[in-house]
Write a protein that binds this DNA or RNA. Structure first.
Lengths: 153, 153
DNA sequence: TTGCTCCTCACGTCACGTGAGGTGGC
DNA sequence: TTGCTCCTCACGTCACGTGAGGTGGC
């Protein structure tokens, strides 16, 4: 079960303890047996966790149908929650992409320093070496990462 | 400081305790004073945390220049780590986007149930109502979310 | 019979959150 | 002087990780 879903045994046990998963039954010796549907459930839970939802958020979605006494109310609840989560996920994805772009600029710039011949300047005057073309901008993240603001008095 | 960066006072204090931030000095009464550069550092740390890096990963990046005795070694170290982190971030972003698409399909499908007139079927026979067009596929996530596999004997 | 897997406590960890009770600084 | 903010312990929380010591099942 754990292996089939890419999570750990501990995680499966933890989810079962907190009621997110239900083992169909136990063997005589206490080993947990799970059905097919619990595997799908576990995969969904794992995906939602990876997407940043808390276990409470996930429980809310998974138990909505049981908690409401009418299908329309339950559906409305889930639709509203899903809409919120989806837009948060989209937002997180775009923030991630933007940061990745900035880090890539930083990495690309710094890769030129991997063969830097001006070893004397390190670590104090890294920022104004002769490899810098006139007017070239140092990425903002690199200034922080490489402590370049320390060098300007 | 906390407000300027969007994080909490506790987070700032915690980062200072663990050495990620350094307060320039304290007032007579013990209040922390931070410089401009610590604000930029804090923002970078917060962004990287939001992107899923651990504080250890972040520390590794921020302290690389100090830990290595040559600029080229330090640069190579950071370039390599950044490359790894960037590709992980890109991967996470794409997984997030894919899940968002699936959830959106699920939400869209379920939104039709918000006005469902067949209240008798709830919660046991939701899955085979007359609103389903012939041959229409129910999203896989909805089957899990709405416990539709329980209905098929 | 021998490994490998699973079991149950139970304490540890990471990154903070959350009061309690007190002081600072405008 | 009055609020509001910040301070330091110190315990709590969330979602598991990590042994220790023991049993199961092929």
């Amino acid at each position: 079960m754990a292996r089939l879903s890419g999570s750990t045994l501990r995680t499966v046990r933890f989810y079962e303890e907190t009621g997110l998963l239900r083992s169909v039954q136990r063997t005589e010796g206490g080993h947990r047996l799970f059905g097919e549907r619990e595997l799908h459930r576990l995969r969904l839970v794992a995906d939602l966790r990876a997407a940043g939802l808390s276990l409470d958020d996930i429980r809310d979605l998974l138990e909505a149908k049981l908690r409401h006494d009418s299908g329309t109310r339950a559906a409305r609840h889930v639709v509203a929650r899903l809409a919120g989560q989806i837009s948060e996920m989209r937002h997180r994805a775009s923030v991630l992409e933007r940061l990745a772009v900035q880090l890539e600029e930083t990495r690309s710039f710094l890769s030129r320093c991997c063969e830097c011949p001006e070893t004397d300047g390190f670590p104090d005057t890294c920022g104004n070496c002769s490899a810098l073309r006139e007017g070239e901008e140092i990425p903002a993240l690199l200034e922080v990462l490489w402590h370049l603001d320390l060098e300007k008095p």
